[in-house]
Design a protein around this nucleic acid. Sequence first.
DNA 1: GTAACTAATGGAGGCAACCTCCACTTTACC
DNA 2: GGTAAAGTGGAGGTTGCCTCCATTAGTTAC
Lengths: 202, 202
Amino acid sequence: MTSAAMIPDVRSQRPKRADARRNYDKLIAAAREAFTEEGGSASLEEIARRAGVGIGTLYRNFPTRQDLLEAVYVEEVEAVCRTTEDLMGDPPWEALVAWLHRFLDYIATKQALSQELFNHLGRDADVFRGCRTAIYAAGEQLFVRAQASGDVRNDVSIDDVVMLVAGISKMPATVEGQIPRILDIALEGLRRQAQVVGETGH
Amino acid sequence: MTSAAMIPDVRSQRPKRADARRNYDKLIAAAREAFTEEGGSASLEEIARRAGVGIGTLYRNFPTRQDLLEAVYVEEVEAVCRTTEDLMGDPPWEALVAWLHRFLDYIATKQALSQELFNHLGRDADVFRGCRTAIYAAGEQLFVRAQASGDVRNDVSIDDVVMLVAGISKMPATVEGQIPRILDIALEGLRRQAQVVGETGH
DNA sequence: GTAACTAATGGAGGCAACCTCCACTTTACC
DNA sequence: GGTAAAGTGGAGGTTGCCTCCATTAGTTAC
């Protein structure tokens, strides 16, 4: 699994001195906690406090709030990518659907984080391109397999699918179980191949 | 067109005295501007300044930032609802698709606003229920027509569709024209009726 | 018209978060 | 162990949030 390597390494600027690296790691950990608990606008001073470092150190490592959000976000994405491995044994379509559902669940719990990022960094920031690449690398094998087996129409790309799922994850759910159902409906569109009959051409 | 009346009127608490109402309107206008220009976290003090009223007046009318966001948001939604009228003459499926595309375009430009709301008010706040109702009232005629004509499968609701579109509008676009294309793909899933052959049952 | 009654105003002030700056501490290297 | 460079942390200036209440100005009743 090489997907993690495809994320443009936010951490390439990781500090060199031992104490500095320790502080960096403590900050990421504290930030993950804080963002999870309080959403993407958790106080930076609070995060520094949790990490047990001065506010100045936080700013030295992450000049803007976005930099910190990014660093945390990237770590999370790497985690999802790692979950493909379990699924390569299952039948193509089922495996793909299962992974997408898993992906959906995962993103759903990270809404605050990713929404904050979507808002403030425009949609085509390097991080996103990188994370997208990583997700593709992870999902592509499943996707290609499903396309090869004829389950998925040929005129869509993995790109389309990932974005579709990402979008669905951000919908405001009203009814219990509605979100996964909507995913299934949308995926039916994906699957639909030259097999439909009895319609006017549109 | 009664849809506007179905929004649980945020403005029923509209102030009574003439000067108060004037200030209220100036605040909404200033807020719309500010939110559009600077996103949902524009400074409230700045908004009061733009409106030419004191910060205290802002807080009297809109005790929380959400209240202000809501009021602006509701106005915008009402505007979309009004656009259905043009389309009732077109063929059912085409009219529905066209309206959904229009709806998509519209929401896309208001991202900052709606995302802010989605984040902070949970997904089932009254406003949303109200706005959803209004949107349904607007889209429902189109939707029912399309279902009656056999273009749309019967096991989906207008609710599902609206949410699908809302979700898609929030996807980070990479390629020009990708978003509308994805909407079309998803809508194919909608359309698919008992007309597919040659598949295993799943 | 004007007096009396409120609704409405606006900004001072207290608090908290953001961020910069730099005197000091710690590490790495010789 | 000495020293240069890297890293630290928190005081303090700035700005935004929100409350409170003395003052202002529509409204109503006469």
